[in-house]
Nucleic acid binder design. Structure first.
Length: 486
RNA sequence: GGGGGCAUAGCUCAGCUGGUAGAGCAACGGCCUUUUAAGCCGUAGGUCGGUGGUUCGAGCCCACCUGCCCUCACCA
C-alpha cells in the first residue's frame, strides 16, 4: 500500500542525491530484445555493445553481482550486473532499482553456463522509477476486474494480453491490406447522425449546443456508405466504431468496431467469396493450425466453408418446414418462445436462433433469409419470400452479415415505412437517403464484419472484453447516492 | 432488468462446525560475483468490498448496498 510507495520514494530520493534523473530521456539506437536473441542465435557472440531498454521483471541479487530480467513488447532478456564491470557507483544505482522500473542498458551479449542469452551490463540508465510494484511475477494478474480496469497491468503481467492486443492490430491491418489490394478505398462517414439508420438498435443520444440539435451516435455507417455508391465510389470500406445502447455481454460491448464494405456491380455471392478468402487468409497468417480452440469448442477453419439456405438449416436442425406455418408455430411454442402476433418470418428466426445457431460450429454461410427480416436487401429472384442475404457463423457467433443491396428507391421507401410502422420509435425515416437512391445507385454487394468478434475467434478469446483494450465498466466507486434526487 | 456465483495483505491464494488472521511472491534488514519461480537468516505488512443485524463472540450466519464474472432478455 502506502508502504511500498514510501520505500520507493526513498530510493527515488537517493537516486536524485546521486545526481541521477530517475525519469530519463529518449535513447537512440535501441534494439528490441527479441532481435538481440535472434541475432545471437544466428551469428553468435559479437564484440560490439548493444543498447536495449525495458522494464525489470525479475531480480536475482547475489551480493556483489546480480541477474535481472528486463522485458519489452517483443520479449525478455537476462541482464548480468557485476560490481567489477560497472564499478562502485553504478552498482549502487542498481541496488536502488526495483521490479517494474524501466531502465536502459548497454553491454555485450553472451551465453551463461546454463545456456541463457544474457547481456553483461557495462552501462546503466534509469528511465522510469516505478512507485508501485507490478503484479506478481509467477501467476501474473488474474483478477479479471483489475485486468480490465488497469489494462496496463494486464499488458505488463500477462504475455497473452499483449499478444492478443497485437494480434488484433495485425488482423485489422490485414483486412486493410486485403481490401486495398483489391481496389477498395477506405472512407470515413459520420459517427454523429441526425437519424440513426442502417440497423435496428437503440442509439446513444447526444446534443450539439450551437446547432441546438440532438444527434445520435451511429448504430451503423451503411446509409452513408451507400450514398457514396450513388456518388460513384465503386469499392469502399470503413473500419470504425458503432455504438448501440443495448445490453453488455461476452459478445457485446456498447461501442464496437465494424467493417463495412461495398462493391458496385457485385452481389452477396461476390461478397461471400470475398469473406471466405479474407477470413481464411487472416486465420492462416495468424496461426499455422487450421483448428482454433475457442473455450470448450474447437473450430476447423479449413475451406471451403459450408453454404446452406436458412430454411434448409431450419429443417435440418430444428425439424421445421418453413412452408408449414402451423407446425412451425407449434414448434416455437414447444421451445417456450412467444409467438403471439409475431409474423411467420420472426417466428422462424426465433427458432433458428434457438435451435440452429448453437450447432453452427465450423464456419457456415447461412444464405437467403426470410424477406421481411431484411429491409435493405434485394429479394431472391426465384422465391420472393426470401432475400439475398447471408450471415457467416463461426463457433455459433455471428461474424459477418451481407446483402445484395436494394437499389430501388421506391421499394426502399416502402420497406422503411413498413419498418417504422412496426416498432421503431426512435429516429425517423431517412428521406435524404431515399433522395440519394433516386439519383441511381448501382447494384452492389455489401458486407459487414464484426471486428471484435472476428478477433475473438482468430485469437481464441471467448469474451469480447479480452479483445477490447478498454471495455466499458461501471466506475469502481460511485459517489454516494444523493438523498434529494428522485 | 431477472437468475446464479465471486469479493481475505501490493499480487496469487488458504482459512474446518462461528472462538478473534495464514502461506507463497513482492517489500524491509543481513549474508552471498553464473543465477533463473536463486538460496539462507530475520522483520514488517489486514476497515476480511461497504452498512446494518443475529450471537457471549462473525472472515464464516442473515438483510441491504457496491463492483465484477456467468447466464437469460434486448442486440451484432
Amino acid at each position: 500500500m502506502e508502504k511500498f510507495e514510501q520505500d520507493r520514494l526513498e530510493k527515488l530520493k537517493k537516486l536524485r542525491e546521486k545526481g541521477i534523473d530517475p525519469y530519463g530521456k529518449s535513447c537512440n539506437g535501441l534494439k528490441s530484445l527479441r532481435s538481440i536473441v535472434e541475432s545471437y542465435n544466428e551469428k553468435g557472440e559479437e564484440s560490439d555493445n548493444v543498447r536495449v531498454a525495458g522494464r525489470i521483471s525479475s531480480l536475482r541479487p547475489h551480493g556483489k553481482a546480480a541477474f535481472a530480467d528486463i522485458r519489452d513488447w517483443t520479449g525478455k532478456i537476462q541482464l548480468y550486473i557485476k560490481l567489477n564491470n560497472v564499478g562502485e557507483d553504478q552498482f549502487e544505482t542498481f541496488k536502488l532499482l526495483d521490479l517494474g522500473d524501466i531502465i536502459g542498458v548497454e553491454g555485450k551479449v553472451f551465453k551463461t553456463k546454463t545456456g541463457e542469452i544474457t547481456i553483461v551490463v557495462e552501462n546503466l540508465t534509469v528511465l522510469s522509477k516505478a512507485l508501485l510494484p507490478p503484479p506478481e511475477k509467477w501467476h501474473g494478474l488474474r483478477d479479471v476486474e483489475l485486468r480490465y480496469r488497469q489494462r496496463y497491468l494486464d499488458l505488463i503481467a500477462n504475455e497473452q494480453a499483449m499478444k492478443t492486443s497485437l494480434d488484433r492490430i495485425k488482423i485489422i491491418k490485414g483486412i486493410r491490406n486485403f481490401l486495398d489490394s483489391r481496389g477498395y478505398v477506405e472512407v470515413e462517414t459520420p459517427m454523429m447522425q441526425p437519424i440513426p439508420g442502417g440497423a435496428v438498435a437503440r442509439p446513444f443520444i447526444t446534443h450539439h449546443n450551437t446547432l441546438d440539435m440532438d444527434l445520435y451516435l451511429r448504430i451503423a455507417p451503411e446509409l452513408y456508405l451507400k450514398r457514396l455508391l450513388v456518388g460513384g465510389m465503386e469499392r469502399i470500406y470503413e473500419i470504425n466504431r458503432n455504438f448501440r445502447n443495448e445490453g453488455i455481454s461476452t459478445r457485446h460491448n456498447p461501442e464496437f468496431t465494424m467493417l463495412e464494405a461495398y462493391e458496385a456491380y457485385g452481389d452477396y455471392n461476390s461478397m461471400m467469396r470475398l469473406t471466405e478468402e479474407l477470413v481464411s487468409k487472416l486465420a492462416s497468417e495468424l496461426r499455422s493450425d487450421s483448428n482454433i480452440s475457442f473455450g470448450e469448442k474447437t473450430v476447423d477453419m479449413t475451406t471451403p466453408w459450408r453454404r446452406a439456405r436458412f430454411n434448409e438449416l431450419l429443417e435440418e436442425y430444428a425439424g421445421v418446414d418453413f412452408d408449414d406455418e402451423a407446425a412451425m408455430r407449434q414448434k416455437a411454442e414447444g421451445l417456450g418462445l412467444e409467438t403471439g402476433n409475431m409474423p411467420r418470418d420472426v417466428v422462424a428466426n426465433d427458432i433458428f436462433e434457438e435451435e440452429v445457431v448453437p450447432k453452427l460450429n465450423n464456419p457456415t454461410f447461412v444464405i437467403d433469409y426470410p424477406a421481411s427480416l431484411c429491409p435493405l436487401t434485394k429479394l431472391c429472384e426465384d422465391d420472393k419470400r426470401f432475400a439475398q442475404r447471408f450471415e457467416l457463423y463461426i463457433a455459433s457467433i455471428e461474424i459477418a452479415n451481407s446483402y445484395t443491396e436494394l437499389n430501388e428507391p421506391l421499394e426502399q421507401e416502402k420497406r422503411f415505412i413498413e419498418q417504422i410502422g412496426g416498432k421503431l420509435d426512435w429516429g425517423k425515416l431517412d428521406d435524404d437517403f431515399i433522395l440519394a437512391l433516386k439519383y441511381g445507385m448501382p447494384p452492389a454487394g455489401g458486407l459487414g464484419i464484426g471486428i471484435d468478434r472476428l478477433v475473438m475467434i482468430l485469437t481464441g478469446n471467448p469474451s469480447i472484453r479480452d479483445v477490447i483494450l478498454f471495455p466499458l465498466l461501471r466506475p469502481a466507486s460511485r459517489p454516494p447516492a444523493e438523498e434529494t434526487v428522485e
